[in-house]
């Protein structure tokens, strides 16, 4: 087994394990932190796969995203520390079966399908970033621009949904 395979396996296992912990703990803070560790392990796995730019981006983005998620968790939950050990699941058996079937199906395809010849050498980091930039501003420009517009639309929509309506502001003194 190569060093690369070891790191991919190690960080992959860590990502899956922390993903499982997200749904096994009663504490919302621990859930958010477990998801953060899971996504960070994925970032490290990307680095192991020689995708330096995306690995670093993944770690930076997910650290920010999960910190915000943890704050929202504390704001929304009745018992963010999980001391009351509230049951927050339903249709557990169906969910387990669906999750297992999804994993088995995807794993079977991964193992049984013939993926063809594997390329062992990846372009160096600088070349990758240059290629990605050219791709984003060249052939995939339309997709990239659509993603930008979609982000802007989602930001405006999310803010519009979240802010208090004007009539509610004028009738209550709470806000």
């Amino acid at each position: 087994m190569t060093t690369q395979a070891f790191f991919i396996g190690f960080f992959g296992l860590a990502a899956v394990w922390f993903g499982v912990v997200v749904f096994r703990t009663h504490s919302m803070m621990r859930s958010a932190l477990a998801l953060l560790f899971s996504q960070t392990a994925l970032g490290a796995m990307f680095l192991g796969m020689q995708a330096e730019f995306l690995g670093v981006l993944q770690i930076m983005m997910m650290a920010t995203e999960m910190s915000i998620m943890a704050i929202f968790m504390v704001m929304f939950m009745m018992d963010p520390g999980g001391l009351g050990e509230m049951e927050m699941t339903h249709q557990k058996r169906l969910s387990l079966v669906a999750g297992f079937v999804a994993f088995t199906g995807a794993a079977a395809v991964a193992v049984l399908f013939d993926w063809g010849p594997v390329v062992s050498v990846a372009p160096d980091a600088a070349q990758q970033t240059a290629d990605l930039g050219l791709e984003l501003l060249g052939r995939s420009m339309l997709i990239f621009e659509t993603a930008g517009i979609t982000i802007l639309t989602a930001m405006i929509a999310a803010t519009a949904v979240a802010i208090l309506p004007i009539e509610a502001k004028t009738t209550t003194n709470e806000y």
Partner: peptide, 23 residues
């Protein structure tokens, strides 16, 4: 083996995510 490990990780994360989203 690297490709298989990565795809298995993806499959496992997908399965765990399906369980979480449904349960």
């Amino acid at each position: 083996i690297e490709l298989i490990l990565a795809l298995m990780t993806g499959a496992a994360l997908f399965g765990v995510g399906i369980y979480g989203a449904l349960s």
